[in-house]
Design a protein around this nucleic acid. Structure first.
Length: 274
DNA sequence: ATGTCCACCTGCTGGC
DNA sequence: TGCCAGCAGGTGGACA
């Protein structure tokens, strides 16, 4: 079974890297807002504010993409099905938001399920912008350590799987990479967060970094080697060891299991993960 | 404070 | 063959 990857941290990182050469240093010549809202209403002054703005740089925080301009920062979230389409051959009914650069490149934010969001934040307000300020450490940065996890998980009785999805504990993980990281570190998804030994947390940190880095590397390869006819940025081929593989063989020979918790699928191997 | 559940949304799948 | 219920899940809010 093959599952299209949802936009988690690696997909957002790959998207930002793909947008950078198109946007960085450019001036936004035209902005089109095609509906009132995605998950949240578009800022009412979005079009006016971005038109004529100069893009100074692009970045990412957790699953948020950041487009810094001389008039503030455009913060976008891809939700579950969001992607940017660059110079697409044809129009699509789920192209909700368009930027045209002074070079005539056209970028469409496409999101058929509309769980994504777009916001515009003043530079001086960015450090206290609530959606970003509440986030835990970047998993690929120096602040994600076993010691951090030990402190953040202390006393927590919930399952480690659920807790790792909490963006305040670690920022940027979603259902897919949490399942993969737990599998690689041999930790059962239902294990109580507060009761995990330090050595296992060390292994978990390593596994989280590794699975994200491998995925970003794969995405980078895709961007370099493969030009999608529609210029899609945000989805790329990937292979998972447990996610979406219910009933298939784990590397150890046991069968991959699926369990639903809180309406979310958890894929795991009952033999490798304890 | 913490854990649990639901709403949001649409394309796809499986069952009849 | 066609229809439709059910499912997928990131996030924020409601609730106990």
């Amino acid at each position: 079974m093959r599952v299209p990857p949802l936009p988690e941290l690696p997909e957002v990182e790959t998207t930002v890297r793909g947008l950078r050469p198109v946007l960085e240093g450019r001036t936004i010549a035209e902005v089109e807002v095609r509906r009132e809202r995605l998950r949240f209403p578009f800022p009412p002054d979005l079009r006016q504010r971005l038109t004529g703005a100069r893009v100074t740089g692009l970045g990412r925080r957790a699953k948020y993409g950041l487009v810094h301009t001389d008039r503030g920062t455009l913060v976008f979230h891809l939700g579950m099905t969001g992607k940017w389409r660059v110079d697409p051959a044809a129009d699509d009914k789920h192209d909700h938001f368009m930027l045209r650069t002074d070079e005539g490149r056209r970028l469409f934010l496409n999101d058929h399920r509309r769980f994504g969001s777009v916001d515009m934040v003043d530079d001086d307000a960015l450090p206290t912008y609530a959606p970003l300020a509440a986030l835990g450490p970047e998993p690929l940065g120096p602040d994600l350590t076993a010691a951090h996890l030990r402190r953040a998980l202390a006393g927590r009785t919930g399952g480690i799987k659920t807790l790792l999805l909490d963006q305040r504990i670690v920022a940027g993980l979603g259902n897919i990479y949490v399942c993969e990281a737990l599998h690689r570190s041999g930790i059962a998804p239902g294990r109580m967060g507060g009761g995990i030994a330090e050595g296992r947390l060390e292994r978990l940190v390593v596994a989280v970094r590794k699975v994200l880095e491998e995925s970003i590397a794969a995405g980078g390869t895709t961007l370099r080697d493969f030009q999608h006819p529609d210029g899609d940025l945000g989805y790329f081929a990937n292979s998972f060891r447990v996610y979406g593989r219910e009933g298939e063989r784990c590397g150890c020979g046991a069968t991959v299991k699926r369990r639903v918790e809180g309406g979310r699928s958890t894929f795991y191997c009952g033999r490798c993960q304890r």
